[in-house]
Amino acid sequence: MIQIHTTCHQRIAALTFLCLLVLPGFSGCSQESPSPVSEVVATEATQNKTGEVSLAQVYEVLQQKKFVDLTHAFEPGIPHWPGFPDESVKTIYWYDKRPDTLGSGFFAQMYCHVGQWGTHADPPAHFVKGGRTLDEISVKEMIMPLVVFDVHAAVENNPDYTITMDDVRQWEAQHGLVPKGAFAVMRTDWSKRWPDQGAMHNSDKNGVAHYPGWSLDVLKYLYEVRGITASGHETTDTDPGIATTKDEYSLETYILSQDHYQIELLTNLDQLPEAGALAVVTFPKPKGGSGFPARVFAILP
């Protein structure tokens, strides 16, 4: 539930503006049920001649909130898909004066890594020929209501666990319908194994990886019925380890074939509420880019 303090008129207006104009369904209530936030908006509209709230007021509200970084810092040697080479970093300029000029020096580095490095974005083109590349994803797809499916307890008992429709139904029974346009993430606490590559892949003596993943019925429900914008997880892959060991990536293929993007290798999901937060997902804009490290964070209610 969103707590609204009537002692500050501007903050009420800014918060309700953000919830209803920027993020439909943000309150976590069923879309078929009346929302107390909508009642506040109606009141505010009668009190404000223009019925509008400035972005400065929205900013003031956001500054009072807690921000949580959901991104791993990347460097050489971090966990990654086995088929990719490691990152290399070279310092090409330093603070000392450069011998070729009279000016002061500066710090500059050259990075070499695959697009799918660290916490990263996978656009449709990553798996789908002709699909959208990173530069074709609109900025309006980067601010979303955040939905957290917490299955970490099940994963503790079964590292091969895949999320079920019962998990989703339980979330909706408690928080209302998954809001349209949401960023849906699966909390497994697998990121606590970072940056140990062996622990992340969790392979047995036969080389079979054992880590959790999504399931097709849940993904189809979220994307086709609830209309989410994107999804994310803490593991290196959308599909569970027992599938990727066999080079099967049907779940990632499904998401990207629906013209949506995903984020892999998230962290700090244990610091988030299951509902009510905002997700901000950002990444560079390489022309025709098939993937790139992302910076993802949450704004808590």
Results as ranks from 00 to 15, higher is better:
Ile263Ser: 04
Thr119Ile: 10
Arg132Asn: 08
Ala199Gly: 04
Thr282Val: 12
Pro145Met: 06
Arg169Ile: 12
Asn48Tyr: 14
Thr245Cys: 00
Tyr59Gly: 11
Glu248His: 09
Arg187Lys: 15
Glu44Ala: 13
Gly103Trp: 05
Leu62Ile: 05
Trp194Met: 12
Asn206Gly: 11
Asp166Gly: 12
Arg226Tyr: 06
Val178Ala: 11
Ile228Cys: 03
Tyr111Phe: 14
Pro286Cys: 08
Val128Glu: 02
His120Lys: 03
Ile255Phe: 05
Trp94Lys: 14
Ser250Gly: 03
Gln271Leu: 11
Met144Ser: 12
His175Gln: 09
His80Leu: 12
Thr282Ser: 15
Pro82Gly: 05
Gly115Ser: 05
Thr188Arg: 02
Gly288Ala: 07
Ser290Lys: 13
Val218Trp: 00
Phe67Asp: 07
Val37Gln: 05
Gly25Leu: 02
His80Tyr: 08
Asp96Val: 04
Gly131Tyr: 04
Tyr59Met: 13
Pro145Glu: 09
Leu266Trp: 02
Thr101Gly: 13
Tyr254Arg: 08
Glu141Met: 13
Trp117Phe: 14
Leu216Phe: 09
Thr162Phe: 02
Asp204Gly: 05
Asp259Gln: 05
Asp150Asn: 15
Pro24Cys: 01
Pro284Leu: 04
Lys49Tyr: 08
Trp194Phe: 15
Asp100Trp: 09
Val208Thr: 12
Gly130Arg: 11
Pro293Arg: 11
Gln262Thr: 07
Thr245Phe: 00
Gln57Tyr: 10
Glu264Arg: 13
Ala154Val: 07
Leu23Thr: 04
Ala182Trp: 02
Pro34Tyr: 09
Val22Cys: 13
Trp171Asn: 00
Gly227Asp: 00
Gly176Ile: 08
Leu23Cys: 08
Gly181Pro: 01
Gly105Pro: 00
Ser203Glu: 07
Ser38Tyr: 00
His72Gln: 09
Thr229Trp: 08
Ser203Trp: 00
Glu252Asp: 09
Asn157Leu: 10
Ala275Phe: 06
Gly181Ser: 02
Glu87Met: 06
Ala45Arg: 15
Ile12Ser: 02
Val178Ser: 09
Gly105Thr: 01
Pro34Asp: 12
Val148Asp: 12
Lys192Ala: 14
Thr119Pro: 10
Pro145Ala: 06
Thr133Cys: 00
His5Leu: 14
Pro24Phe: 01
Pro301Leu: 06
Asp204Arg: 04
Trp214Tyr: 11
Asp135Gly: 10
Lys97Ala: 13
Thr133Gln: 00
Lys285Ser: 04
Lys205Ser: 09
Lys140Met: 12
Leu146Phe: 00
Asn157Lys: 14
Glu224Leu: 03
Gly291Trp: 06
Thr7Phe: 15
Phe17Asn: 11
Ser231Tyr: 09
Gly118Tyr: 00
Lys180Met: 07
Thr91Gly: 06
Leu300Arg: 11
Arg187Pro: 03
Lys192Arg: 14
Thr188Asp: 03
Val218Glu: 02
Leu134Met: 02
Pro286Phe: 08
Met1Tyr: 10
Val185Thr: 11
Leu23His: 09
Leu272Arg: 00
